[in-house]
Amino acid sequence: MNFFTDLEGQNNRPAHVASWSLVALLLAAVFWFGFSRLGYRFAWGTIYDYRMNFLKGYGQTLLISLFALVFSIILGVLFGLGQSSRILPFRYLSRFYVELVRGTPLLVQILIFFYVIANAAGLHNRFVVGVLIMALFSGAYIAEIIRGGVDSVGETQRETAKSLGFSPFQTYLYVIFPQVITRILPSLAGQLASLIKDSSLLSVIAIKEFTMAAREMNANTFSTMEAYIPLAIGYLILTVPISRLTRYLERKFSYET
């Protein structure tokens, strides 16, 4: 009986289950060993006292991520296409934006946006600030995803549209975008997962999202593990389904050439 290798054309389900369990067990053993050396005494009761904080924070993280995703898609389309715009100031604005945001740490962006830009603009609603920061951050990555998607629709497609008398705008609308959307859906889903995790950094400017709930509980009760382990599980509950969705979308659209 073969328990360790995946053979082509064979449905070897028991082997997959066995290997999956083996890895899970090994991980559990490592963690169990680590915690036993630490001699940590868990006091799970504390998290129960903070449950409302956690739930509200979870909701905030979800809301911030979803709003930020919508705005970052708008920014991504604008600046993704802007990078090859004929209007030169717009082209260079797009390139500066993408390079600056992708080339600097999110933490720095959060602090600068919060203490400099938001402050100067008189923007004090932290939820709005959080959404804006995450949208600006994620928008630069989506701009690159969209630029790559548009570039991947070959020159021949554009030329064919041209030969049929389509205007450049019609070419984008009817020929390029429909193909780009199916191609970039998996990457966009992945970007949502990143947004959810990256929004945890917003806790440094005291936005009451999921990670902030854990930080607060830790600061008040010193129950570090009881705060951060549920936090990790909370993020996984969101990101694992998204990553499954990403794989599904990749398979679904892979037939297109």
Partner: peptide, 16 residues
């Protein structure tokens, strides 16, 4: 271009 028809070597149908 609207008034002429063009056929390419690689067909160039829109795949979507």
């Amino acid at each position: 271009r609207k008034r002429i028809g063009m056929v390419f070597q690689a067909y160039n149908l829109f795949p979507h």
